[in-house]
């Protein structure tokens, strides 16, 4: 049984086809990486999965259930967690409260249970010490960690990470990757868009390449990275 499945999903903005006939499956507990040049439609793909954008064609399945017409809030409850490329904390709430909202709504937990659950996540993501600080005053690394922690607090079965390692120093990146690995080790499926390839490839089992909204290739990271076509399109632009 797949946890997440896209079937021939297409989306156009005007004449521009940003997602073009994309189909793929994610197995429970699997980690899938997505790479592609800027404008390849990576973030749009996430918005199609979370329900923030409705596809023109095709279907999205969660746990075998068709959720193509399900509103975003209900997809969160059904198990899709999401971190934003640009961190979007609830600035006036404390770090702890940021997670509490996620646990009480997306995670569907009761008050006492949610409190302990959130503190556990904060400790594991290295945010325990700032639990009672306002989220608006956090550093970039802490904001990225908060994005991850808040998504985890919704108790996702599949978590979508959008360029979470971008903008971090090498040292910070290593710490964050360790946290993501730990989440993966517990059996949460991960779909991760990233430009920082060494971070991505140290976690994911499969890699997918998007270009002009089309899925160019999907497979083992080594095989994908070795492909001449990928090197030309993706690495050519990066280098």
């Amino acid at each position: 049984m797949t946890i997440l499945s896209l079937r021939s999903v297409s989306k156009s903005f005007g004449a521009l086809k940003v997602t073009d006939d994309v189909s793929f499956d994610v197995q429970p507990g699997e980690a899938l990486g997505i790479i592609g040049p800027n404008g390849a439609g990576k973030s749009t793909l996430f918005n199609l999965i979370t329900g923030n954008i409705a596809p023109d064609q095709g279907q999205v399945f969660l746990d075998g259930r068709d959720v193509t017409r399900t509103p975003p809030m209900q997809r969160v409850v059904a198990g899709v967690g999401r971190s934003f490329q640009i961190p979007q904390p609830f600035g006036d709430l404390t770090v702890y409260e940021n997670l509490l909202v996620a646990a009480r709504f997306g995670g569907g937990m009761g008050g006492r249970e949610a409190g302990l659950f959130c503190m556990d996540i904060l400790d594991r993501t290295g945010l325990g010490a700032v639990a009672e600080k306002k989220a608006g005053g956090l550093s970039l690394l802490q904001r990225k960690r908060l994005e991850l922690a808040r998504a985890m607090a919704t108790r996702p079965r599949v978590i979508l990470l959008d360029e979470i390692a971008g903008g971090l120093t090498d040292g910070e990146c290593v710490e964050l990757v360790a946290t993501i690995r730990a989440i993966h080790a517990e059996g949460t499926a991960i779909v991760w868009i990233e430009h920082v390839l060494h971070a991505l490839n140290s976690v994911v089992e499969r890699l997918m390449v998007l270009n002009f909204g089309r899925m160019l290739m999907i497979g083992a990271p080594d095989a994908v990275m070795a492909s001449a076509q990928v090197r030309e399109i993706y690495l050519g632009i990066e280098a």
């Binding site: 809030m73 934003f84 979007q88 569907g108 998504a151």
Partner: peptide
């Protein structure tokens, strides 16, 4: 937007 993404309607 973020509230929606954690399940708040």
């Amino acid at each position: 937007n973020a509230a929606r993404s954690v399940g708040v309607d």
